[in-house]
Design a protein around this nucleic acid. Structure first.
Lengths: 344, 344
DNA sequence: TTCGCTAACCAATGCGCTTTGGATGATTTG
DNA sequence: CAAATCATCCAAAGCGCATTGGTTAGCGAA
């Protein structure tokens, strides 16, 4: 059933039917009712392709995800972000398109997307340092919001980001306040800007208290369970007075591995080893205990997705408004994985 | 740059340019070369909407994900499945569209999708028992592949599924062979067919060896870490001779919680408690140890995604070929989380 | 009565592409 | 040498909608 057929059924012109359905004023109330009723009865839905060809808007938002050849780990937080975003989309009649772009073909892929005209805007995930995609998208003129940012004081494009520096500064400070001096930091890959900023926060807190940073306690790898396990195990094999008493972990998944290593070493979190993590509040990892298991800097990635989508739709609706930046602050909540240092 | 402009630039008609680009034979080789070169130089890409309006094919595959209101946990395996699928898509020029359908609006949502004509086919995720979506899609006439199935011997629609029954039968059998009699089974929600079939496999192995199934050891909940922790902790609080000596866990995430409870109880996997899990081989949980940590029935969900996409594209290409079913067998690999029963 | 105005409708065009059904000149065939 | 064939191109229609620019009838005002 298409518009033309529906119009014929009703003895009206396609014009009038179209206007009736889209709430234009040039149609009498009686006719509008009749048209809308018939549309529902006949299960009529406008053809999205025809509509977008006629209007120029596709009502589709793209989410673009770089896919490393050697290390194509799906970011577990990505799916959570998507859930938040898709809530915004469905409320506004938008669809969500997913593009996994293999490393190296970025330029081509983005130009493809833009000139094929199948998306009204995109959200760019996992930016890396010096990410060329921002310039590319600006050049192409495709509305976009970055999840994360690519440099410090960039005000000329829209992004939403967690205040990673502040979060890790606070987390480190808490460990220091608890008396921990030997702090190990298991970060994500520092080609990602968020990881760099976490590193900055860590350094800042350490330096402001004039605590030495042990280079042997610094790590930067993809955030897997195995990474957390392997490194923690190795760290804890040293004598008590030498090994780290505090662990700063960049993700829940790393923490799962670290927790395993700690348990296997016969130690307890919050006693011999204090652990602080960054927690993106993934739904399937949420615990319902009264005292949270991990002391953590928390920030809902689902909410970030929702807000990012909001920002993008706003840009699309009003392209002349300048770019917007949102910095989400974390809550540092104390759980049972931290306690005073007992090995000094 | 559109087709018409490109044609004008070249002094050709749009018809000829279109045919040249799409490798129709009615164009001379010389002209074809010239056209293709100009297309690249001008960064020309055909407008996807116009193309699909003209051809009737949208080159878009939808992935449909039910979103429970009360329990909208994003299945962590979903994103892994998507990575596999999108590999197939990008090789074949398809795009991936994601639809999260809130519970209750399913019927409307699917009809929307179909009549808007924005997708050439869909992959349906997380089917539940008596899922009405299969009938709905067949009635609508939209090509689809089910990830999972909804009943035992359904041969009249296409699906891809892991042989859950056989996997859990084997896993249970291994525990039994190791001397475990008191086996706890932490399953997923049994409104999902895969969970039901796992239950069947478990029962089958228990019954064939005439081992009693303790109803107090049977669970069925959303597969979270907290679930694994809470239930395992409670189970292990019973005296050694009474509590389960073997745990059968429906997912890696559950196992993470169970492992935590086991460690906290001062016990070791493979010694006092044997654990077998089902492992979907999520990339960020893969361990690189020589002996895997968990004894598990393994099946790559990424590969399933790749194959599901393959099947769907085949159906779209050749709609008259009958439905196809693929049953993926698991590998039962022995890790360090299982050992002989020591508490009988 | 005539004019202008408004409410309510419609015909026709265009979005950018594919595809059908020619048209044209060159080449081959009997 | 005329007829048939072929290679190569093009004009125009159509996909399903939104939108521009009418048209018509009915009304009140002058």
């Amino acid at each position: 059933m298409n518009l033309k057929q529906l119009a014929e059924n009703l003895g009206l012109s396609p014009t009038t039917v179209s206007r009736a359905l889209n709430d234009y004023p040039e149609v009498s109330e009686v006719t509008r009712r009749r048209v809308k009723k018939a549309a529902i009865q006949n299960n009529y839905r406008p053809n999205a392709k025809a509509m977008s060809l006629a209007t120029g808007r596709s009502m589709v938002i793209g989410h673009i995800l770089p896919l490393d050849a050697k290390n194509d780990i799906v970011n577990p937080i990505f799916s959570e972000f998507i859930v938040g975003a898709s809530q915004t989309y469905s409320e506004n009649g938008y669809q969500l398109m997913l593009s996994m772009v293999p490393e190296g073909t970025t330029n081509q892929a983005y130009r493809n997307i833009a000139s094929k005209g199948s998306m009204d805007g995109v959200i760019v995930h996992s930016p890396i340092n010096q990410d060329p995609r921002v310039n590319l998208l600006q050049e192409i003129g495709l509305p976009f919001v970055l999840h994360g940012r690519i440099s410090d004081e960039d005000k000329n494009y829209s992004w939403i980001d967690v205040n990673n520096k502040s979060a890790f500064e606070q987390a480190t400070q808490l460990l220091l306040d608890l008396g921990h001096q030997r702090i190990a930091f298991l970060n994500g890959e520092e080609q990602h800007h968020f990881a760099q900023r976490r590193r900055m926060g860590f350094k800042s807190a350490m330096q402001s208290t004039k605590t030495a940073i042990n280079p042997d306690f610094q790590f930067s790898e993809p955030m897997t369970e195995e990474y957390g396990y392997r490194v923690t195990k190795s760290l804890l094999s040293a004598p008590e007075k030498v090994r780290p008493s505090g662990l700063l972990l960049s993700s829940y998944v790393i923490a799962l591995g670290a927790r395993r290593a700690i348990h296997e070493a016969g130690l307890q979190m919050g006693k011999e080893v204090s652990v602080i993590i960054h927690d993106d509040e993934l739904s399937y990892f949420q615990n319902s205990e009264t005292v949270p298991q991990f002391t953590a800097t928390r920030s809902s990635v689902r909410d970030a997705g929702l807000q990012a989508a909001d920002m993008l739709l706003k840009i699309i609706k009003n392209p002349d408004a300048g770019p917007e930046q949102r910095l989400l602050e974390c809550r540092l909540t104390v759980g049972s994985s931290t306690g005073p240092c007992i090995s000094n």
